[in-house]
Design a protein around this nucleic acid. Structure first.
Lengths: 289, 289
DNA sequence: AAATACTATTTCATTATTTGCAATATTGCT
DNA sequence: AGCAATATTGCAAATAATGAAATAGTATTT
């Protein structure tokens, strides 16, 4: 029995949902389905009772679940003692971060770490920055680089890497959007569809008692820069995204008052996961700011 | 970690010899080498100290050996309890037998057994009948069909399927080899290079005080029939081989006195292996004769 | 009752891995 | 030096695993 299969099976036992497990374990539903089928094939017994909308462990499934737990435990223990023996950390860490974060921080963070722990493998997943927190909460990745939410869930720990102001950007060539002359009610806005920045912007407008025109709600700060540069309207993004954007010359920043509260970008992990020596090592490799 | 890999590793720990392990585990040396290499790769540490002529477990290797033992144990136990749960035997049995035995007995033995235990998989290895006993002693296969040696090693158990007389065969068309007119000293003999039949024949000639001319020593009774049919000389084989040979019309049998003692053909296994419920099931499926 | 949404599975083409054979390399022995 | 014994590698063929998209089956909504 191979450990990957066991993990998939165990996760599936928890969720009882192929879609969620496949997503959480970074594999396609089809691969998962077939892994389980094959498992049932080799065991010569079915493990899940699938009645089309829900599923349930069979008796044999529970037996196998117990075996799977013990077997993975055994494996973990072995890895542990091997590490103690060789005095060298080894294993896998998965990191989630936005494209921008991967450009701006990841390299810096990982180069030193890699030198110190060459045997730790990294799996990197990129996506919308706003998904970072939920990804961590759902155990999909070990660590994430993202913005600190105003209310950090108590399960999580956060370590700031940097702060970045929020900037308003407009198409560089458009005279209409000069500072202070903006008629907010008529200006199309391009915003994240959800998440921290969206909240800050909403609050900002509420404070000013303005009902803005929202032109587009997109996911991904990089997409906002694109749309703004094309002249669709004004957007709000972290300055760091702008600094790393190839489109930086196509847009200009607009002064605004009161200033939007800067976001804190940093490393995020579940507290319990920090007991894992690998994750802790990466965590500790970052200086406190 | 997958169980096949673990078995290979554990076996290699015992033999400390790639060649022998690969042979015993029915895989090529290259596959074995690469399995171990890959193992060492994924563990990030070397498991064996290979100093070119001998090998030795490293400290990490011993650690892994312990893990491998526990892990396979866990697996065995799980299989065991799964069987108890489903009330159905399942797993793998490997059988060694000669080509002739596979023609004449195997089908009869296995058809009923397969119906009774459809989830037991079979691996069949064919080869020289004389290797059957050693193959069992070396744990290469679970069961073998072969001739009962005069002195059955105490580790082994034997269950007779049938007895078969030993016959002398000569080329069918050759008048020179008529009964009673044979000049043994000048007649080329084709014999097994070793094994039970060879011993019987040697004894027979000693009793008669004849020093025979041995033309060829071959391995495999089927090969003897071939050579005899081509006119190379006289051979001795079990009658059952002759009955199953496509060359039966190309040879004739020769009366001889005293008659060579018949051989007993049967199923052979290590006593300790008979505790394995799968093997015991097959064993018990044969009637006592 | 038709449309829609949700999920597991299958199909299919592609990619990755594993295998065995034969060649190679390395060393001990005569 | 030449030979025998072994582990390892190169290579091509066979196997297996994968994801994207199509499919099927069913609950929920319209």
């Amino acid at each position: 029995m191979d450990n990957r299969t066991l993990s998939l099976f165990l996760h599936l036992c928890e969720t009882l949902h192929f879609g969620r497990t496949s997503q959480a374990m970074h594999t396609s539903p089809s691969a998962l389905t077939r892994t389980i089928q094959q498992l049932e094939e080799t065991l010569g017994t079915s493990l899940f009772e699938r009645d089309n909308r829900s599923m349930q462990l069979t008796k044999e499934g529970m037996l196998f679940q117990q075996y799977a737990r013990e077997s993975t435990n055994l494996w973990q223990n072995f890895r542990q003692s091997l590490m103690e023996e060789t005095q060298e950390l080894q294993g896998e860490i998965s990191i989630y971060c936005s494209v921008t974060a991967s450009y701006s921080f990841l390299h810096t963070i990982l180069t030193d770490f890699r030198k110190a722990h060459p045997k730790i493998g990294m799996t990197l997943h990129t996506g919308d920055s706003e998904d970072a927190i939920s990804n961590i909460l759902e155990d999909t990745d070990d660590l994430a680089i993202g913005a600190r939410p105003d209310k950090l869930p108590s399960k999580l720990d956060f370590k700031r890497i940097t702060t970045s102001p929020l900037v308003m950007i407009a198409p560089a060539k458009n005279q209409q959007y000069n500072n202070a002359t903006i008629n907010w009610e008529n200006t199309p806005l391009i915003l994240s569809e959800k998440g921290l920045i969206r909240k800050r912007v909403d609050t900002w407008f509420q404070q000013k008692n303005i009902k803005p025109t929202i032109y587009a709600q997109v996911s991904g700060n990089e997409a906002i820069v694109s749309m703004v540069s094309l002249g669709f309207g004004i957007g709000v993004i972290p300055k760091i995204v702008l600094d790393n954007s190839p489109l930086i010359n196509q847009v200009k920043t607009i002064d605004h008052k009161p200033l939007l509260k800067p976001i804190e970008v940093g490393l995020c992990a579940q507290k319990k996961r920090l007991q894992n020596p690998l994750i802790k090592a990466l965590w500790d490799s970052l200086p406190n700011t």
